[in-house]
Design a protein around this nucleic acid. Structure first.
Length: 582
RNA sequence: GCGUCCGUAGCUCAGCGGAUAGAGCUCCCGCCUUCUAAGCGGGAGGUCGUUGGUUCGAAUCCAACCGGGCGUACCA
């Protein structure tokens, strides 16, 4: 397309434009929504209407002629049509399609993977306080972060995943007081539970297992020491609980970064000096302030309180300075939307420290509402009716939990329908995609494994022998033009149409990955998988794979094998398993 | 008040500058002698929150307004 455009410009066919660089109209090839408009379409003639000063239709016709002159293109294209108001529609010849299947066979689990970009990315997510179990909101953050990390890896980045442990400050002292009180009570002491503390029922199990481990050996220490020791014991148990739960969702972090280590390592003290050095601080009312307003925030922010303690912002700035020190090209933070007000403060702090704020992206995830029997399940932290992530996983399973938390874009509120997530049918996309994968496996089993005749009870040989299948696999791979697959187009128009649609979908996977990476939106991959599953079902419905004609069976089995592979690749990014049978 | 996210079919959501706005659920009507019917096809269902603006062209971009969520600390 680009070549045709350039050639047309050189020949003076584009009016005032003498070169493709003379205007800013980009060559964009898109996939039309309607199949009537061919396999691909280009709308650039519409955009060229103004600079070329000619009607879009005439420009499109001119460009189409130049495409016809290009022999390399003509080999792949079956048809080039111009349609009102000025689209150029391409219908692909079969060569392009068969090469796609062959490419899937050759690349396998790497089909769709982008080449190495030589860029280091840090994705920091969950980072929940170690003061209780993870709830469904953390679950969303966790799943989104994990999917994004998978996606970025698949998109050619080198990715580290990090969990920031907020094991310092007021909330951890609070935890200590609560844990200490519960510890004493569980061991028969009559002490009061802190009135402003965390709900007892959230902590009781953790304190109980601390008691089980260490017994009453700390009962005699003073209150201060008790809060500190028992608090830390419970804190570690909570972190371990979070780690185990996340692992059950397939999430594992490369680094668990301790906030406490920033204080003991002097990073926080240093960062205050660093702010000072760049001239962004002042003292007022006994506190130490950051000139955040100059840096884009709505007001100035306190770095060190009049009590002498540093604020969360100061600690977070110190933390982020270590990220910059670790030489990442891109740092992505996944935060709950309730923290959106902190974004300008952190970005401002980063700028004040002389770092490049554009390397730091904050993605905010909106809330999750759970519904059951068509009713939203009311959640309240104070009333203790928060739904825990573990409850959801227990109820609907890890795969469905991941799918529903991965599918939506982060800025949309999720309505998680617990009843739907448990259904085994078309209406549940998580199931439907897995079912499509299992169906591909079933067909391959049917073709390759011996079966038992239900009437005679005798074992029957499979239609395709193991030896033949090995030959087929070699042929799929060795034949880069995919000539084996031309048999797919010999059948009747309906079947060929469905096969073509299926292959065309496989072909778009790499560009879907690229778009999802650019948009930081792994949910696109979830939807792609759903569309692919649908294309497979439609093909399956109209045509058998295993037929009497060996060349047709061979071609179709190759297509099924490729579809299974791409489904697995897509499911891999969103972290949902690809079952062999259901 | 200010900031931010969201308003698309009865419901849950895609689409985010282009061709007749798409799926699934729900409601009707069809399709199993053959690889998983846990499936497929057809029908019904819309002033894309409202009003202006930019554009050859707006659900999509801009502005104002109307609804709803979240936030607005010397808490973390």
């Amino acid at each position: 397309m680009q070549q045709a455009f350039s050639a047309a410009c050189l020949d003076g066919a584009m009016g005032p434009l003498k070169s493709s660089a003379d205007c800013s109209v980009a060559v964009v090839i898109e996939k039309p929504k309607s199949a009537e408009h061919g396999d691909f379409a280009c709308g650039m003639a519409l955009k060229l209407a103004a600079p070329v000063k000619t009607s879009p239709l005439r420009i499109a016709e001119t460009l189409a002629q130049y495409i016809g002159k290009n022999e390399a293109c003509a080999a792949y294209l079956e048809k080039v049509e111009v349609a009102a108001p000025g689209f150029i529609n391409f219908t692909l010849g079969t060569a392009w399609l068969t090469e796609t299947i062959s490419a899937v066979h050759n690349l396998g689990s790497d089909y769709g993977r982008a080449p190495d970009r030589d860029k280091k990315v840090l994705v920091e997510y969950v980072s929940a306080n170690p003061t209780g179990e993870l709830h469904i909101g953390h679950g969303r953050n966790a799943v989104f972060g994990s999917c994004l990390a998978n996606l970025m890896k698949f998109g050619g980045y080198s990715v580290d995943q990090e969990f920031y442990i907020n094991d310092y400050g007021e909330q951890i002292l609070q935890l200590g007081r609560c844990a200490w009180a519960l510890y004493q009570r569980l061991l028969g002491q009559a002490v009061d539970y802190p009135t402003e503390g965390y709900p007892e029922e959230f902590l009781r199990d953790f304190v109980q297992s601390a008691v089980d481990t260490v017994g009453d050996q700390y009962l005699t220490v003073g209150d201060e020491e008790g809060c500190s020791i028992v608090g830390d014991l419970v804190k570690d148990l909570i972190i371990e609980n979070q780690r185990t739960l996340l692992k059950s969702l397939g999430i594992e972090f490369d680094v668990w970064y301790s906030e406490r280590s920033l204080h003991s390592g002097g990073n926080v003290v240093d960062v205050l000096k660093e702010f000072d050095k760049h001239g962004f601080t002042y003292e007022k009312d006994g506190a130490y302030w950051l000139k955040a307003q100059e840096l884009g925030d709505e007001r100035d922010r306190v770095l060190r309180k009049s009590t002498g303690a540093t604020t969360y912002l100061a600690n977070d700035a110190a933390y982020h300075l270590t990220k910059y020190g670790r030489n990442y090209d891109l740092m992505i933070n996944i935060w709950g939307a309730d923290h959106h007000g902190q974004v300008p403060g952190l970005k401002g702090a980063v700028r004040a420290l002389g770092q490049d704020p554009s390397k730091l992206e904050v993605i905010l995830t909106q809330m999750v509402n759970l519904s059951r029997d068509g009713q939203i399940v009311k959640m309240s932290k104070r009333a203790g009716t928060v739904i825990m992530l573990s409850e959801v996983i227990d109820e609907v399973g890890a795969d469905a939990t991941r799918y529903y938390l991965a599918e939506s874009s982060p800025q949309n509120t999720i309505n998680f329908d617990l009843d739907l997530a448990k259904k085994t049918g078309r209406e549940n996309p998580a199931f439907y995609i897995q079912y499509a994968h299992a169906r591909c496996c079933a067909i391959l089993r049917k073709a390759l494994e011996p079966s038992t005749n239900s009437e005679s009870g005798e074992t029957e040989q499979p239609p395709i022998s193991a030896h033949q299948w090995q030959e087929f696999l070699q042929e799929y791979k060795g034949d880069k033009q995919g000539k084996v697959f031309t048999a797919l187009f010999d059948s009747d128009a309906v079947i060929a149409g469905h096969q073509k649609a299926l292959i065309a979908r496989l072909e778009t996977f790499p560009s879907e990955v690229e778009e999802a990476v650019q948009a930081r939106n792994p949910g696109r991959i979830a939807r792609f998988a759903y569309d692919l599953a649908n294309d497979l079902q439609k093909f399956y419905e109209v045509s058998r794979v295993i037929t009497d004609d060996l060349s047709v069976s061979k071609a179709r089995l190759g297509l099924i094998f490729a579809t299974k592979q791409v489904l697995a690749n897509a499911l891999g990014i969103i972290g949902v398993s690809a079952p062999e049978r259901m």
